[in-house]
Simulated assay, not measured.
Amino acid sequence: MRVADFDFDLPADLVAQCPPAVRGGSRLLHVEASGKLHDRAFDDLPILLCSDDLLVMNDTRVIKARLFGRKESGGKVELLVERVLDEYEALVFIRASHAPKPGSRIVLADDVAVEVLAQQGDLTRLRFPRPVLDVLDQFGRLPLPPYIAHLPTADDEARYQTVYANEPGAVAAPTAGLHFDDAMLDTLREQGVRTAAVTLHVGAGTFQPVRVEMIADHRMHSERYTIPQATVDAIYETRARGGRVVAVGTTSLRALEASAQAGKLHPGWRETDIFITPGYQFQVVDALITNFHLPRSTLLMLVSAFAGMDTVRAAYAHAIAERYRFFSYGDAMFLDKRPQ
């Protein structure tokens, strides 16, 4: 299967540059397993869920992962933290005229200097003189996606974060969750819909282009995730009641499906580079809430695997014709899983 099979033409003015005026004020395209499409508002979500259903959400919190500094020689450097490894070390993408060498230092604001430890593929391992999250909180900027043209504002710092964000570590938001506000969550709980959490710290690799022709040749960046025992228990209880497991976002889905690769869900921390493409047999997730994704992206391949390539292709053509808003600040889809 070729990457070109997942290409489409998207008018530039459909790429959402700002969130809707109010959280949850988005449109929702319901895509049935049969391929039938329904234009709805996100406020209609409760009518698509039943009292036995379980929503699984990614509670990661976006960190201020973009830093600016200079090499000791004076050259400018831009850093994008891809992953915080431990209290003092991180893997970063570096943009500079010449990549800094191991053993050198990069000076940030207030003469805070980070040490270049090693090159790891297209990433660089750095050691910070203070806890990484403290430095990012003091000097970092919100890492808005590359297709959002404006510099981050105070409004972005509030809206490019889910209302249930709890665990700091992501450098990109789990954007399907941005549609939920507290009122919607209260309504769903009153309806009997249960919620559970996973944590997958979304890395900058989510925006990296697929640079190969055949999708089988692509390798995903590894991401760290955790599934609490309470979430595992809630999923099996949902199954016993005949309810559906509904993943809020592709990151929640990837965590659940990665955990189930050995045949059953396992609680705790793990690493995954799972690459879900058409032909994958889903073991955990029955329905998916997600945004509209980039052409030729691994996320578009994932939703095509979930709902079917022809169904997703038709849904995207419909969304473009009806002028849905695309990508992180855009509208949402509710996808029923295709029969396997």
Rank of each mutant, 00 (worst) to 15 (best):
Val3Pro: 07
Ala12Tyr: 00
Leu14Tyr: 03
Pro20Gly: 08
Gly24Asn: 02
Asp39His: 15
Phe42Pro: 03
Phe42Gln: 01
Leu49Arg: 07
Ser51Cys: 04
Leu55Pro: 02
Arg61Thr: 13
Ala65Cys: 11
Gly69Asp: 05
Arg70Pro: 02
Arg70Ala: 15
Gly74His: 06
Gly75Thr: 00
Lys76Asn: 13
Lys76Leu: 11
Val81Thr: 08
Leu85Phe: 01
Glu87Ile: 03
Glu87Arg: 14
Glu115Ile: 01
Arg125Tyr: 00
Arg130Asp: 08
Phe139Gln: 15
Leu144Val: 09
Pro145Thr: 07
Ile148Ala: 06
Asp155Ile: 10
Tyr160Trp: 06
Gln161His: 03
Gln161Val: 05
Gln161Met: 09
Thr162Asp: 05
Tyr164Asn: 02
Glu167Cys: 09
Glu167Leu: 04
Pro168Leu: 04
Ala173Met: 11
Pro174Glu: 08
Ala176Asp: 06
Ala176Trp: 01
Ala176Arg: 05
Ala183Leu: 07
Glu190Asn: 13
Gln191Trp: 00
Ala196Met: 08
Gly203Ser: 15
Thr206Val: 12
Val210Tyr: 02
Arg211Trp: 01
Ile215Arg: 12
His218Cys: 08
Thr226Cys: 12
Tyr236Val: 00
Arg239Ala: 07
Arg241Lys: 15
Arg241Asn: 05
Arg244Lys: 14
Val245Trp: 09
Val246Asp: 04
Gly249Ala: 10
Thr251Ile: 01
Ala255Arg: 03
Lys264His: 14
His266Gly: 01
Thr272Gly: 11
Ile276Glu: 10
Ile276Trp: 09
Pro278Asp: 08
Gln281Asp: 09
Asp286Gly: 10
Ala287Thr: 06
Thr290Glu: 06
Asn291Pro: 06
Val303Phe: 06
Met309Phe: 08
Met309Pro: 00
Asp310Ile: 01
Ala314His: 09
Ala319Met: 04
Glu322Cys: 11
Tyr324Asp: 11
Phe326Cys: 13
Lys337Glu: 09
